[in-house]
Nucleic acid binder design. Structure first.
Lengths: 228, 228
DNA sequence: CGTGTGGTTGAAACGTATCAAACGTGGTGG
DNA sequence: CCACCACGTTTGATACGTTTCAACCACACG
């Protein structure tokens, strides 16, 4: 992986613009001054921790990342899964409000927050893009509030499966990239409830499972369960 | 109330800049081109409904507004209470993702979304302010996810009381501006549980009540309950 | 072929929801 | 001015869904 120096797990960005940078190196399409540096994390490796200084913004190239918050007694709430193409931790503020960890071996692009902020203060277009991304993150979070506050376990799991399916291409058949624990901590349930709910959905013919990870959704039936 | 024409409940903004506009008419300090128009809503009146075209951004001057989402069977999740000074519905997008209603008689300033977007595309500073506001809304929503997904009823109510206290001046004694139903729908509980939890907290000496609305918090004890 | 990790299943406990009734307070009309 | 009504709140008894604790299973890995 070029353009990268690693020093005790922390990415050190080379600031010179590499010649012939590929388009996917950019933060946004049409913003060539913001070049990311590739970086990799192993399965379960921490990308950053809550409270740490927020120096970078991340864009997932391959693999997946989860961001979460924890209470002192260990209760955990996952606030998002970040799949290829997603940007995360582009909020403002000095320190990280989450911990981020790689679900599987993951490649990301890191962008200096400084550079992004400088670009935003100079270019209204960049700033508007950032506004838009924060706004869509907010919409997503508000939808998830409704799920956490008001939906039953079956509804949560069914919603989750349809969401992952959509983000993974919408074929209806895919491998869950996360463990039961991650799903539970995302949905505000326990692993046992997630597991039981999956078997229940399978018995109702709303999905089929092959092994623990692969699922084939009967989307019409799942939609009936969610039934906005 | 000057500079206002009402037509079937919808505010119609006068686009001429009024001479001698007061500073609190502005969306941000130091952005004189964005002038708001005052408007009022009665208790329980709808400000806008989910799915409607999003034409305005709102800033609360007095009173309070709640924004919520509903499922088809009536289950409701309040995503935020908006008190004097707060801006809301400044996200991007064509249509409203929430319904907004006045908790009590409420005065707001409305700003044309068009004008704000135009200002944002022209001024990086404006766009950065909007980015910042969306980002802080996102942080707030993520904290609330942790509450809804992982905290018990007592913790939710205690957190809520401390939050309202902080936003109402932090004196420890205040009148709750919303009903038990609103509190319940904000915290993902039922009104009965909210009520029982309040009596429980009172019995534990964590607060005192006068009537249904006024509370005096023993903040040290409440903090022990929350105990991040 | 054992060992570890993640997943499933079962039984019982727990916390919150549900249903129902009583209470209190503020507003209205006699 | 007081009686009455309506609405929001509190309290009680019971039901239900999810969690907890425990055992078991399946698969990957050394």
């Amino acid at each position: 992986m070029a353009n990268e120096i690693t020093l005790s797990g922390v990415p050190h960005v080379i600031t010179n613009i590499p010649v012939g940078a590929k388009p996917e190196c950019f933060l946004f399409a049409g913003c060539p001054e913001l070049i990311g540096t590739p970086f990799s994390y192993a399965r379960e490796e921490e990308v950053y921790g809550e409270g740490e200084e927020a120096e970078f913004v991340y864009k997932v190239l391959g693999g997946a990342v989860r961001t979460h918050k924890v209470l002192s007694d260990g209760r955990r709430q996952i606030t998002g899964f970040h799949l290829p193409g997603d940007l995360f931790e582009f909020e403002q503020g000095e320190t990280h409000r989450h911990t981020a960890e790689a679900l599987s071996d993951t490649r990301v692009l890191v962008f200096r927050r400084r550079g992004i902020e400088r670009a935003a203060t100079r270019s209204a277009e960049v700033a508007c893009q950032l506004w838009g991304m924060a706004a869509s993150g907010l919409r997503y979070a508000q939808d998830h509030m409704l799920l956490l506050g008001r939906r039953s376990a079956v509804e949560r799991v069914a919603t989750f499966l349809m969401e992952v399916d959509g983000r993974l291409g919408g074929t209806g058949t895919f491998d869950l990239p996360m463990t039961r624990r991650d799903i539970a901590d995302y949905l505000g349930l326990t692993i046992e409830t997630v597991s039981r709910t999956l078997t229940e959905l399978e018995e109702d013919g709303a999905l089929q499972r092959i092994g623990a990870r692969q699922v084939s959704l009967r989307r019409a039936r799942l939609r009936r369960v969610v039934e906005d």
